[in-house]
Amino acid sequence: MTDETKKKVEDKILGLVTEYVGKKRFKPIDIVKEMEKEFASEGLTKDDIKAALKDLMDEEKLVYGYAGGSFLTVPENK
């Protein structure tokens, strides 16, 4: 996966999570499945998508929430 694709995936993920804040709680696996569909033509693997997710979390653009199960969300102060 090139840095460019990764950036694209990250933006897509962030957009998706932000759009659905308060409406749907995405588990990481939901996102992986969504992105696999979204980027099917570019042959992205699960591991690629997980790597993008990890980046987002290391940069604290995404954080974990918990409500009976873990999910991803944007930090509260945003």
Binding site: E60, V63, Y64, Y66, A67, S70
Partner: peptide
């Protein structure tokens, strides 16, 4: 009930 706590990079 609820409220988050954590360290950077970890979800657990």
């Amino acid at each position: 009930h609820g409220g988050m706590a954590g360290v950077k990079g970890y979800g657990a």
